[in-house]
Design a protein around this nucleic acid. Structure first.
Lengths: 125, 125
DNA sequence: TTGAATGGTCAAATGTATCTGACTTAAAAG
DNA sequence: CTTTTAAGTCAGATACATTTGACCATTCAA
């Protein structure tokens, strides 16, 4: 997402790993979706929970997720403004896949760390 | 992956979406794994199948996947050289998650495209 | 003796995702 | 009259992923 390639909108025929990464391979999109799984969150709440994100990227990420119909944005015409974000039904359908990835990461971490330290000492004396 | 953050090796406790993206959020890693699902492939075969990848990025991607124990690299001491890459068992465990993502993308594409065109014409005239 | 093929490496240039910091709007509180 | 708040916007700088193009070693075939 965010990239130009998206506009080249995705090739129904190919539907490869590339399309997924074009959408979610950025730094924040999946994280925002994951945070919204429990319900509504305001802009500032997301900002606090993620901490390291810049305002600009939070705005950009939320906008692109909204454009794709994965989250919805509700504005309350108050002062100061109040904006709440929730997952749409479409957005919710992504959660099982995210969970699977998270589970894979949790299960595989020991093996990955082991492989990595093996590379550090390639059967050295 | 490839980024520095990886070295900061990943926080067993957090195990969030971030760790996954730090590993696979790049442009090529998941694609390589997906291509290797059917069996061995030589360097040049991967190069041909992906087309748009540069030699350098193919090398870098393969090396980092090997370091993480997801693929294995077998060199045949011939001239000209022959190098074959295969998924390790660990690498294979990632396939179901990839499949789930691909299925999600295929299923959700119509809805995403619809949402996107709705944003293009926000109930205008 | 030149060229092709394989699996690379390296330096430098490019592209683009992301960050920083300043600014905005409107009302309400001090 | 100044500050605070929420949810942004904008310009400019930075970081880093990726590409381009040159190069290497070795052997066989022309």
């Amino acid at each position: 997402m965010i990239r130009k390639e998206i506009k080249k909108d995705f090739d129904m025929a190919e539907c490869s790993v590339r399309n997924i990464l074009d959408r979610f391979g950025d730094k924040w999109s999946l994280m925002v979706i994951d945070l919204l799984r429990e319900g509504k969150l305001r802009y500032s709440e997301l900002d606090n929970k993620i901490e390291s994100i810049s305002q600009k990227m939070l705005t950009v990420t939320l906008k692109s997720l909204e454009t794709d119909g994965l989250i919805s944005r509700k504005v309350y015409p108050q002062i100061p403004p109040r904006v709440e974000y929730t997952l749409t039904e479409l957005g919710q359908t992504l959660l099982p896949a995210i969970d699977m990835l998270k589970k894979w990461a949790a299960d595989s971490m020991p093996a990955i760390l082991a492989a990595r330290s093996k590379m550090a000492t390639p059967s050295a004396p």
